[in-house]
Design a protein around this nucleic acid. Sequence first.
DNA 1: CATGAATGAGCTTTCATTCAT
DNA 2: TATGAATGAAAGCTCATTCAT
Lengths: 217, 217, 217, 217
Amino acid sequence: MTQVAPAAGAGRRGPSPDKTARTRRAIVAAALDVFLERGFSDARMIDVATRAGVAKGTLYLYFRDKEALFEGVLREMMADLVGALSPQGPAPGEPLRAFLRRVALPAFRGLEESRRAGLIRLVVTEGGRFPDVAAAYRRVVVDPVTGAIRRLAQEAVARGELSSDALVRFPLLLAAPGLTATIWNGLYGAEEPLDTGAVVEAFLDWVLPEVPPSDGR
Amino acid sequence: MTQVAPAAGAGRRGPSPDKTARTRRAIVAAALDVFLERGFSDARMIDVATRAGVAKGTLYLYFRDKEALFEGVLREMMADLVGALSPQGPAPGEPLRAFLRRVALPAFRGLEESRRAGLIRLVVTEGGRFPDVAAAYRRVVVDPVTGAIRRLAQEAVARGELSSDALVRFPLLLAAPGLTATIWNGLYGAEEPLDTGAVVEAFLDWVLPEVPPSDGR
Amino acid sequence: MTQVAPAAGAGRRGPSPDKTARTRRAIVAAALDVFLERGFSDARMIDVATRAGVAKGTLYLYFRDKEALFEGVLREMMADLVGALSPQGPAPGEPLRAFLRRVALPAFRGLEESRRAGLIRLVVTEGGRFPDVAAAYRRVVVDPVTGAIRRLAQEAVARGELSSDALVRFPLLLAAPGLTATIWNGLYGAEEPLDTGAVVEAFLDWVLPEVPPSDGR
Amino acid sequence: MTQVAPAAGAGRRGPSPDKTARTRRAIVAAALDVFLERGFSDARMIDVATRAGVAKGTLYLYFRDKEALFEGVLREMMADLVGALSPQGPAPGEPLRAFLRRVALPAFRGLEESRRAGLIRLVVTEGGRFPDVAAAYRRVVVDPVTGAIRRLAQEAVARGELSSDALVRFPLLLAAPGLTATIWNGLYGAEEPLDTGAVVEAFLDWVLPEVPPSDGR
DNA sequence: CATGAATGAGCTTTCATTCAT
DNA sequence: TATGAATGAAAGCTCATTCAT
């Protein structure tokens, strides 16, 4: 009667215990591929199914329709992002530049290798026609990140590290280089890929002052 | 403007004089609207035709197919852009910051009001699946602009106005804030529009040093 | 400028003038066949199209969807019925029995040969799940007919021709034999067809009194 | 009713004693509901299963396919009917009118409350496409009833109670009012229900002569 | 040049049926 | 016996494209 760990062959009528989880993951992964390659409208359910190794109908056991599949894929990817955006703060006394090099740079570096760059491009290209998707992305990614940037910038201004309040007013300025490089790679990455990490690093080094040897002298 | 009688002696009956040019312009304008609203795949030829005030079949007298219409529209818009990107250089002795405020800022300011913001978003969203479009945009817009930025940056570095070579290595850093704001407006502009000009201005003021009163002595 | 009768080859751009009317009729006729044979759910649009000699898509130029086609077919058939139910009243002094033999009998006689029997069966079998269809049939056919019957019955009662008010209370009693025979033919007509006219005639002769030689003596 | 322990000595483990009979009844009852609500084609097996409280696959342990389930349901209902159509004859000397009021009227009165009205409508609406169903209904219901009516009518004619042979030639005339009212209720019963018993009663009173006080002398 | 009825490939979605557990 | 995840044939509907007028 007690829920025993799936003893082989014991109770559990019907299909296997966690096979469905595997199937779902396969569908989501396949769908991400297809949506990235063709965009929402041009993606064909049959291609998703084939790539996931399931039949067409199976998709509809997991997602009500194509739109739900699309949003499901994005939501799944965003969940990953949330982990990557762990709420680390700067170490005490750590200057902004050092902190961003330590925290933001690695996030941008892995962007293309992980599928996150693709996710961003997907949101950018399809978000206009999927308000729900855009809103979810904003809630999960944009607002937390810009909020954190604004807070950091305010502190840096207060400490005199930043002479301009530009970042306080427009936190997305800090994300702009990485986003722009990501979009470049979507358009021209095949023939002339851009190293997003290098772009962001050059940007940080350019616009954030090297902290003067902290002693006042 | 007045309906001119068929030029005597020409004997041409139906084929009007420049009516076709007007029709073509109407189609292109209508198509731009529709593509901006729905993207390439979701745009319907019948909508383009209706908005242009012609019949479906007429579209095919001007463009071989939907794809040709799409590329034709973008090419037309880019031709307009070429004019807007007049090859102005800085006045002799004009610092980078002053020059960019004078030249770049107005270009970004009118972005949303003109159709250029829409064009940019269209290239960003559809360029991945229309290599020709992306390549044309690069040839017409991206390369000239980044080339100019790089030259300006090199001179500024040489003059000691810029201490970093970031802009020389990645000229798109200068375009990133405007592009990012434009994308924001595509996603969230309806509920929270962003003033692209203000973003770019804040960026320029932040990252470009106020030239020290170059000591006129 | 004035709308000239379609002079051959004159103005009139595009397809022919009344070809569309022919196409529409072909579709409606084909659809009636298919709906009669298979019912609404089992009828396939491709079958309707094929039988009408057009392509699938053509159906949707004339009817928004399958349901609209179904209702269109019924409405078209009902229009015929309205003609058959011309509002004839009894001749002055004509007894009910004579009047009904003169007017109602022929209507029932041609039921099976015309497509009206099929229409009735269609309404009976599909009306439950198409409230609009049932309501339209009621408005166009049922209510006018029962209204007329009720009026006739009231007069007959007043004249002493009918001793019962059954027909006044339930006019459908007069239609019941014809309807029942029609349903029989839908179920068993293939192996044992029933002559609806004969059934109705036997019924009228049974239940309506032969008028006594009109002089009071 | 009580869950009997597997009969000692039988040794049968899983296969329960009469549980299968209960399951079968549940399936049939659920299927009747669903078929009545949606008709054969639009009925979904999953709905039948859910309503019966079993899994989809279980249905197929009891019925080969949807069609078999449909026919099984109707056959089951007809078996019930056979009981309700007890072969009662008129009491000696009982006039036709009195007999029909005593026997037929109650049968029609309970029609809508029992599921029999639904069964009739199901046969009427689906019988055309299920010849087996129509034939079974005819064998079980129609032929016995019309046979009885014909016999009764013949005797009534012989006794001089009926002056017309209409009922002898077309016994379904007697069933027509009840059938017509039942169909009415299928189409318009929601907004304007018709009392089938009242209709039949009015009909009987109208068309069957009150027997003259047979002169007891 | 212009029209718009007609076409049919192509796509999404449903659901009866199967079968490993 | 019972389950329900998986299957895939089928059907409705759309829309780019054609072509007779």
